[in-house]
Amino acid sequence: MNEIAIYLITGSVLFCLGLWGVVMREHLLHKILGVNIMGSAAFMLFLAFAARAEPADAVPHALVLTGIVVAISAMALALALMKRVAKESEQHQATLEDSQ
């Protein structure tokens, strides 16, 4: 159980870290990476919960695989949008300062 507790705590810390990145960092790439870290944290919790059973529960593995596919598509859209924001902004910076 102790090993699982380590993963659970790491997952929670990672989630908060990712959220900090989304809220506090200005550059859009940092924000996008922050969202990804939050996602990884949630996946880590899923897998830690799966490891509690003997043999390991298969359902969370399937869920995490699906989640990774969703995360990749979201990431692709986010990066494409970020490039467009940088191109359209006056100083060619990928930040959100210009919107009101």
Partner: peptide
């Protein structure tokens, strides 16, 4: 694009 980006970040979070 900036509005969409802001929306995307909030929506993903």
């Amino acid at each position: 694009a900036a509005a969409a980006m802001r929306y995307l970040i909030i929506s993903l979070t």
